[in-house]
Nucleic acid binder design. Structure first.
Lengths: 237, 237
DNA sequence: AAATGACCACATAATCTGATTTGGTCAAAT
DNA sequence: ATTTGACCAAATCAGATTATGTGGTCATTT
């Protein structure tokens, strides 16, 4: 006669619980910032015991990393669903998501109010050179299609796009209320400015538009896949 | 019989001394930041007694304000001497000066390492709405000449230019050494990006180039004059 | 009149101590 | 096999206390 014991838990439930914990953490960090958000708070808001959280992640930082990766994946999936067909639309969708997601915005801007002591840590872009590399490859394809300026390094174009997004997002925050433009307009301006700076002077040949759309879709597939794998690592599954 | 007394000093010498003090302050603040720079240090480096400094400015902050205003005037005069003839050249010259002047750059970026507790103070652009207004007026002239996009508010264009400059300058600082481009290239990119974002799609009519150059020169005259007056106030003359 | 630098009130920094919080563990419960 | 929450060491915080440094003044000197 064997003891009944507790039956193994459904892995799907485990995953659901992990997400519930991340949901709680996301809300708390957005509201109180990283430093003031304790594991106890997260556990209470997620309706689990503190020890349970450590069944999912070894440290607080790993929980936070998982949260960021989930958010990043969600953002990229959302962008992909919009199915942007040009570089400009892609940047516009990315910017729109950045504006709408406090956590991603905080990461992009290095907002110490939210990130607390993690502010000076590794930049997100440096953290995953793969994502940067994917974007550079994408730019190379665009160049072949005559969609971006051909005679300057892709690395530089990446810097330009980054600077434009950063500049608009940041200055917006520290602007008097009266001078702020609506979100939609801001996003339009970012996309337009970045595209003008990086794009070829003239419109790409009409015949290329299909190839460009395909390249864009493929780029998004690639980065979504990368983000998905990173997240999987962080969820221990 | 009267005592000889000390003869009145030459006002020119007083002014020269004021500048010597500001020179000392500039060097110290660039090196140690505002918080760590004491009046005693400044006095010692300027070769005067502490009390002498208070013959020129009532408080430490007023000394600092004078320093910034002098730097600003110097920067604008330098730009004017380059005689930029287009918006793009103007922005390029401004950016070049910003890159070259640590104090101005610190102000533009709100660098707390240099500004110390003054970081959260009034932004420089808010401080002098006159300068912003002058630039808006300049943009209006350019619009009449077909040099900038006509159907969007000048206010917005000002924001765009600010965002571009800020974005490039800031991201440059937090970039790994290996990815940094040389100063000249950075400046070119800033000018080009801002100009593309704000300029009319097509090149302005050749007939307008003279008027544009005149407007640019007039704009610089205006702001140099404003800056000169502000500085005069700060020097008590 | 013009310049100085010793002087002082006050702000800031540094040190210490005790109390509280919090990330992480693990024996016990299920 | 899972989950829990009391528990602990280590970090953080709050406050008191002391030490140091600094902005600004002014009697004195030139």
């Amino acid at each position: 006669m064997v003891k009944a014991g507790r039956p193994p838990q459904d892995p799907a439930r485990q995953l659901e619980r992990a997400h519930r914990i991340l949901d709680a953490a996301a809300g708390l960090i957005e509201r109180w910032g990283y430093d003031k958000t304790t594991i106890d708070d997260v556990a209470r808001h997620a309706g689990v015991a503190k020890g349970t959280i450590y069944l999912h992640w070894r440290t607080r930082d790993e929980l936070f990393a998982a949260l960021l990766r989930r958010e990043r994946l969600s953002m990229l999936e959302e962008v992909r669903e919009q199915a942007p067909a040009t570089l400009r639309d892609l940047i516009g969708e990315l910017a729109a998501e950045l504006v709408r997601r406090p956590l991603m915005k905080a990461i992009a801007l290095g907002d110490s109010e939210v990130l607390g002591k993690l502010t000076r840590q590794k930049r997100h872009s440096e953290t995953t050179p793969e994502l940067g590399a994917a974007f550079e490859a994408y730019l190379a394809e665009l160049r072949e299609q005559g969609a971006v300026h051909a005679d300057r390094p892709a690395r530089e174009q990446l810097t330009v796009i980054g600077a434009v997004i950063y500049g608009f997002l940041f200055t917006r925050n520290n602007l008097p209320e009266t001078m702020r433009m609506p979100d939609d307009r801001l996003v339009e301006l970012i996309a337009e400015t970045a595209d003008l700076a990086v794009g070829a002077g003239s419109a790409p040949p009409a015949a290329a538009s299909h190839a460009i759309a395909r390249a864009t879709a493929r780029y998004l597939d690639t980065v979504v896949e990368i983000a998905r794998n990173k997240l999987a690592t962080s969820l221990g599954s």
